[in-house]
Nucleic acid binder design. Structure first.
Length: 466
RNA sequence: GGCGACGUGGCCAAGUGGUUAAGGCGGGGGUCUGCAAAACCCCUAUCAGCGGUUCGAAUCCGCUCGUCGCCUCCA
């Protein structure tokens, strides 16, 4: 399989260093609710993890929490709680969101505040090698000590200086030098270090955690494209300088950014939609289909129209696996449906092997959906149908779809819905269609869709408005 | 100013040198239905513009127009 590597700008054959595949994905700074941009990123890397496992790789997945930084301190002071309490609360919310999105848990979730020993060790090592220096209680990384600084974002120090948006800071030797350790101000949380009380800079925690939990060379490092510079650039500089081993990361993977109404959704613009808000309107499968309908490296624009379209698509997939019953595989059926399922699988794998082309993989799934529905009308054997549905469920599962019916809060209302359906059946029996149709219409307005079949009437909750 | 991405049907989105340009949503017409819904069938594009390379280009090159991202906290 091939993976696009930001470092080289090319698709490369995936050859991990060994087993397990070591993967690190940048996590969040838990000072607020996670938004749908985070959802996109973690859905993407969830899909990548699931596919690697589907392809037989064992994956060791680490994701951090930046639970101490300026924003956390500021927010905690606003709310009059400790930085730790604030972070703790939003970490719990983050896990709720990820679970609701059916994002599989990483193996380890280290937190910056709990990795101070390793962080201090790495900073100390860099100072000892003269690649970092202490200045007024801060510690800075000396970018000129790293011969290939800028290789990930593909620009030179000269290019960056030409940007001219760098502030002059007398504490730094070079304007692009960045903080490894920040001295604390009075009243701020701090940790002990050889350079005085302070806290780690943003980039160093990831280097330290990777070195500690995965080693000095890892296979995949992921995050949003907005992290390429400066965050990941600095991580490479620190890590390779400290360990003297290259490459620090074999495949750098970056997802495109989610836009909202044409604008990038970002904390500074304040135009955020939280994951909870999105999930109150759409199913998690719909959000996932929305994300995976395009390539992970392409930017994506969130609009109600497009997510609603994904909701309808998700409903069609769900309907296709309805009534699936697990059966023993029958071996080699030559029925057209089973053959179609095999073809869908082959197309799916081919698409995914090409840098996780989920858009093409999803297309294969929808073709299988059509084949299954067609077969249902033609009353194929239960074994063949179960087999094809099983393939659809399996492949959809690799992309992280649950294909479970929309959870109905109205479940408590189910007996009443059944009652209305009974009444309506009586009305239809005596051809009181106007009343019968009114019941159907008003239930539809409440999000309950009725479907009349020769065998009787079924109902389901729907997120799609009639 | 520097670096980079992108522009495919009404909307979203694959395809990056050669059979009928995937798929989803929407729209139109059918089948089914008391009517619907769901499902199925059929229809709905020549790839921003111009020029070039080539036997042949959406796909390569150049220019023009347009959109966007990064360079600052950010997934």
């Amino acid at each position: 399989m091939k993976i696009y590597n930001t470092l080289t700008g090319q698709k490369e054959e995936f050859k991990p260093f060994g087993t397990p595949v070591k993967m690190y994905v940048c996590g969040v700074t838990p000072y607020d609710e996670a938004h749908i941009g985070h959802a996109m990123s973690y859905i993407v890397f969830d899909m990548i993890t699931r596919y690697l496992e589907f392809r037989g790789y064992q994956v060791k997945h680490v994701q951090n929490f930046t639970d101490i930084d300026d924003k956390i301190i500021a927010r905690a002071q606003e709310r009059n709680v400790s930085a730790r309490e604030l972070a703790e609360g939003y970490i719990a919310e983050f896990f709720k969101d990820m679970d609701a999105l059916n994002v599989k848990r990483a193996d380890i979730y280290p937190r910056a505040t709990e990795e101070m020993n390793k962080i201090v060790e790495v900073i100390g090592g860099l100072i000892a090698q003269d690649q970092a220096y202490v200045s007024d209680g801060d510690v800075y990384f000396r970018v000129t000590s790293d011969g290939d600084y800028g290789k990930l974002s593909h620009r030179s120090l000269d290019d960056m200086m030409a940007g001219a948006r760098v502030e002059v800071d007398v504490r730094k030797e070079h304007p692009m030098d960045f903080a490894l350790w920040k001295a604390s101000k009075p009243g701020e949380p701090y940790w002990e270090s050889p350079w005085g009380h302070g806290r780690p800079g943003w980039h160093i925690e990831c280097s330290a955690m990777i070195l500690k939990y995965l080693g000095d060379r890892i296979d995949i490092h992921g995050g949003g494209q907005d992290l390429i510079f400066p965050h990941h650039e600095n991580e490479i500089a620190q890590s390779e300088s400290f360990s003297n081993k290259k490459p620090f990361v074999k495949y750098w993977m970056h997802n495109g950014l989610l836009q909202l109404g044409g604008e990038k959704m970002s904390k500074s613009l304040g135009n955020l939609i939280t994951i909870k808000e999105a999930l109150s309107r759409y199913s998690s499968d719909a959000l996932r289909l929305f994300v995976l309908s395009s390539h992970y490296r392409a930017p994506l624009t969130y609009t109600d129209e497009v997510v609603m379209a994904a909701e309808r698509g998700a409903e069609r997939m769900r309907a296709a696996v309805q009534g699936h019953e697990a059966r023993k595989p029958m071996g080699d059926s030559s029925s057209p449906l089973v053959v179609a399922a095999k073809e869908a699988r082959a197309r799916f794998v081919e698409a995914m092997d090409d840098d996780f082309n989920t858009a093409a993989a999803v297309a294969a799934l929808f073709d299988l959906v059509r084949d299954i529905n067609r077969a249902k009308e033609q009353a194929v054997s239960a074994d063949d149908l179960a087999e094809a549905q099983g393939v659809l469920l399996e492949l959809a599962g690799v992309l992280g779809f649950t294909l479970e019916e929309v959870a109905v809060e109205e479940v408590a209302a189910a007996p009443f819905i059944e009652l209305l359906i009974d009444v309506r059946r009586e009305l239809r029996a005596v051809k009181q269609y106007a009343l019968a149709d009114q019941i159907r219409k008003r239930l539809a307005d409440l999000g309950i869709a009725l479907e009349d079949h020769p065998e009787g009437t079924t109902w389901k909750a729907s997120k799609v408005k009639p």
